[in-house]
Simulated assay, not measured.
Amino acid sequence: MEPDLQERFDGAMERISDDPYGHGSTAINKETDRREATVAGVVIRYYVSRSVLTVTVVRGVYI
């Protein structure tokens, strides 16, 4: 990832970590904790762990 995109992506991920169910994210297959969102032009799929506030990105696609 180029430094400019990395900086924007990191900032967007900080906002996602503050509210992982918001920011335009959608549930995948009606699973509330399995999410998809576009952040800084990068499509990500992630899981949210409620017990220990953790967001784990499992896939990121950027061009």
Rank of each mutant, 00 (worst) to 15 (best):
49 S>E: 13
6 Q>G: 06
19 D>R: 00
26 T>P: 02
6 Q>S: 08
18 D>Y: 03
44 I>M: 07
53 L>M: 09
52 V>R: 09
2 E>F: 02
61 V>C: 10
8 R>F: 06
57 V>L: 05
43 V>C: 13
25 S>L: 02
10 D>G: 10
46 Y>V: 11
3 P>F: 01
21 Y>F: 06
28 I>P: 09
2 E>A: 12
13 M>Q: 03
3 P>C: 09
28 I>L: 03
24 G>T: 00
20 P>Q: 04
43 V>P: 12
24 G>L: 04
45 R>H: 10
18 D>V: 05
56 T>H: 07
4 D>P: 09
11 G>T: 05
41 G>D: 01
33 D>K: 12
50 R>T: 13
36 E>H: 10
28 I>S: 03
23 H>I: 11
17 S>V: 07
3 P>K: 07
56 T>Y: 03
11 G>V: 06
15 R>E: 09
28 I>W: 03
55 V>N: 01
55 V>Y: 03
12 A>N: 04
60 G>C: 11
60 G>M: 14
22 G>Y: 04
61 V>E: 14
18 D>H: 02
54 T>K: 15
52 V>K: 10
33 D>C: 11
48 V>R: 07
13 M>C: 07
26 T>W: 07
54 T>P: 08
42 V>H: 07
55 V>R: 08
19 D>M: 01
14 E>M: 06
29 N>V: 14
37 A>W: 00
2 E>M: 09
42 V>N: 03
39 V>G: 06
2 E>S: 12
29 N>T: 14
19 D>K: 03
7 E>V: 04
5 L>V: 14
38 T>V: 15
13 M>H: 02
37 A>F: 02
35 R>W: 08
35 R>E: 04
15 R>F: 07
7 E>C: 05
13 M>P: 00
16 I>F: 00
12 A>G: 04
1 M>R: 06
14 E>Y: 04
15 R>K: 12
29 N>G: 04
28 I>G: 14
62 Y>M: 14
32 T>Q: 08
32 T>P: 11
62 Y>G: 13
7 E>S: 08
3 P>L: 06
23 H>N: 10
49 S>Q: 08
32 T>F: 13
48 V>M: 02
42 V>I: 12
61 V>I: 15
50 R>W: 04
58 V>L: 07
41 G>Y: 01
46 Y>S: 13
43 V>T: 14
33 D>Y: 05
14 E>P: 04
39 V>C: 14
26 T>H: 11
59 R>S: 15
8 R>E: 04
1 M>P: 15
30 K>G: 09
13 M>F: 01
52 V>W: 06
52 V>Y: 05
18 D>P: 00
62 Y>V: 15
32 T>V: 08
47 Y>G: 14
29 N>P: 12
35 R>A: 02
60 G>D: 07
34 R>Y: 12
51 S>A: 08
27 A>H: 00
43 V>L: 07
14 E>I: 06
11 G>A: 07
20 P>M: 00
16 I>K: 02
55 V>T: 06
42 V>L: 05
46 Y>I: 12
14 E>V: 05
33 D>F: 11
47 Y>C: 13
63 I>T: 10
